[in-house]
């Protein structure tokens, strides 16, 4: 077999120290994505640094924010009373992902770092610029039913597959990153990248950094919210299109609104123009429809995924309708 060294560590400091020592080392969290990729020959780290024993599993309220440790399991986050009460959108998005068994071991950090499910990326006999830059994109003129309609490049049209991240980008989360020298925080929306001409990079995590946690501001979006995931079967399938929608109304006027889409881009796709449009307006079907139309500016299909040009706005409308009817 392709041998690798297995190391286990219990502190952030030592985890980072081990990581920087070796170019070919990788963190092992739940392993639900990394091990699959190793089995398929997509990646072959020489060292696996098991970080499951690093104490980053806390969920707590700090001031007006909720802190979530990077090694908290997807199930623990989804089921946590604080999350359910204050950030139900996140809880819903998590529940829409994978299966119960996977969520039990998958972690917040691993979920953010999960790689695309593009079939060409997984099959080492096929071209893929993300896996092997310069080999071409198999999906562009191939099977691209699952692929991106926003922010694509001529190098890569893969989508980021996470559900959790769609809620997090909508909720204005911040990511806490640590390296040997200290910590930095970046807005969640700046964590993932578009493919551009560096499709091999999914995000802006630096080679010497570790995700240690998230901070999510508490909001008034716990009443009218919905995470709607459209997929090929009722559970245990990746999104064709998903929409995280939440808003707050005062006197029938929307004063805060968040919209983000999954399954449509190389990163969680925040619908800023639609949000701007809805602010100050009534939560009505006509406004929802117009917001959905605004979201589709610059969308582009590649054949197999052309249906998303219709599905995406429809899903936005339906998610907003469902958020509205939740009272």
């Amino acid at each position: 077999m392709i041998n690798f060294q297995y190391l286990r560590t219990t502190t952030v400091k030592s985890a980072i120290a081990l990581l920087v020592k070796d170019k070919n080392a990788k963190f092992l969290a739940g392993g639900t994505n990394l091990i699959d990729l190793m089995k398929r020959g997509v990646t072959a780290p020489e060292k696996l640094i098991d970080i499951n024993h690093v104490p980053l599993k806390e969920i707590k309220q700090v001031g007006n924010k909720i802190y979530i440790g990077a090694l908290t399991s997807n199930t623990a986050v989804a089921d946590h009373a604080l999350v359910k009460e204050k950030l139900p959108l996140l809880s819903w998005a998590l529940q829409a992902g994978a299966s119960a068994q996977l969520r039990n071991v998958a972690t917040v950090g691993g979920n953010m770092m999960q790689r695309t499910r593009c079939g060409y990326f997984y099959d080492t006999e096929m071209p893929c610029n993300k896996r092997q830059p310069g080999t071409g994109c198999g999906a562009m003129e191939g099977f691209n039913r699952m692929h991106a309609i926003f922010g694509t490049s001529d190098q890569c049209i893969a989508v980021h597959p996470s559900d959790m991240c769609i809620a997090l980008v909508a909720l204005d989360a911040e990511v806490i990153l640590a390296n040997a020298k200290g910590e930095r925080k970046i807005p969640f929306k700046e964590f993932h990248r578009l493919a551009g001409d560096t499709p091999q990079l999914d995000n802006n995590l630096k080679a010497d950094e570790m995700i240690t946690g998230l901070e999510i501001p508490i909001n008034n979006l716990a009443k009218n919210y919905h995470y709607l995931k459209v997929r090929d079967r009722a559970s245990y399938a990746f999104a064709l299109v998903s929409v995280a929608a939440a808003f707050e109304t005062v006197d029938n006027k929307i004063i805060d609104v968040r919209l983000a889409m999954g399954g449509v881009a190389h990163k969680p796709w925040r619908l800023t123009a639609s949000e701007l449009f809805l602010k100050g307006k009534e939560a009505s079907l006509t406004n929802f429809e117009q917001a959905a139309q605004l979201a589709m500016k610059d969308a582009k299909g590649f054949g197999g995924n052309d249906f998303k040009l219709k599905l995406a706005p429809n899903t936005i409308i339906e998610a907003l309708n469902l958020a509205k009817s939740k009272a």
């Binding site: 079939g119 060409y120 099959d123 096929m126 191939g142 079967r233 559970s235």
Partner: peptide, 25 residues
């Protein structure tokens, strides 16, 4: 079962992508 006819290879040859019905269906 989906094939990329340019290569003659299956694209969705795993249980994540070949969708057999699950309980929820």
């Amino acid at each position: 079962s989906i094939i990329d006819h340019r290569y003659g290879r299956y694209i969705n040859n795993n249980f994540a992508d070949y969708h057999v019905p699950v309980n929820a269906d």
